[in-house]
Design a protein around this nucleic acid. Structure first.
Lengths: 110, 110
DNA sequence: ACAGTATTTAGCCATTTAACTAATTAGAGT
DNA sequence: ACTCTAATTAGTTAAATGGCTAAATACTGT
């Protein structure tokens, strides 16, 4: 599992939505494509990105291709994200967002 | 918290590493920049991406700028990722269902 | 005011990404 | 074999990303 590939795959709203839908159950490429306002070829490249990240897999059934959420890899990826971002060593510094000297984004162009 | 901005911010290895380091404690832009084999201006744009996602914040101390992990937002983002990818509604996928009209086509890329 | 240090902004270039249309592949039915 | 449908691949284009060097900004100390 390549964390970089997974995060790049997740960094597009359509691809995140595909994951959400497929977690509810498998869908064919055609049905999935029909849900979004982009062309089928574009959807095909989104499928490929998710497949590359191993977040989904596909099965051909006759003339149609059905996509499935790869739940084990999704769980694995979530674990890695929790390790990256989650709890641990958070006691060494406070969070003085309102302290004097804090540079906020809105304050930037003054 | 914009999930798309957060995920884009996390989709670069240097930026993920910055988060990891800052979670251990604050560091100045200079010290942080010295850790990676890219120029300081390049590091500055990485800081800006993380700041834009609100994953870090900065404080000027005289001539140096110190960066801090924004732990509350990091936790929040992790929560959203868990909601997106995590447990819940993980069907057996025993029979592909015909789900029509879940989310409208108008839900498209940002 | 001037010089020095830390950091960001500006401007530029190469690479990648996301979209499109057109063409191709794969299987089913006639 | 031919045709229809489903989906992908090929090829193109525009925009975004990530890197660089050089210049500008912001403060400190003299």
């Amino acid at each position: 599992m390549q964390i970089n590939t997974v995060l790049k795959a997740l960094s597009h709203p359509i691809r995140r939505d595909i994951i959400t839908r497929l977690k509810l159950g498998p869908l064919t490429a055609g049905k999935l494509a029909a849900e979004y306002d982009v062309s089928k070829p574009t959807m095909s490249t989104h499928f490929a990105a998710l497949k590359e990240a191993d977040l989904i897999y596909s099965k051909r059934e006759g003339v149609t291709i059905t996509y499935y959420a790869n739940l084990t890899v999704i769980e694995e990826a979530l674990g890695s994200l929790m390790e990256l971002m989650g709890a641990g060593n958070e006691t060494t510094h406070s969070h003085p967002s309102n302290r004097e000297g804090f540079i906020s984004k809105s304050e930037k162009s003054s």
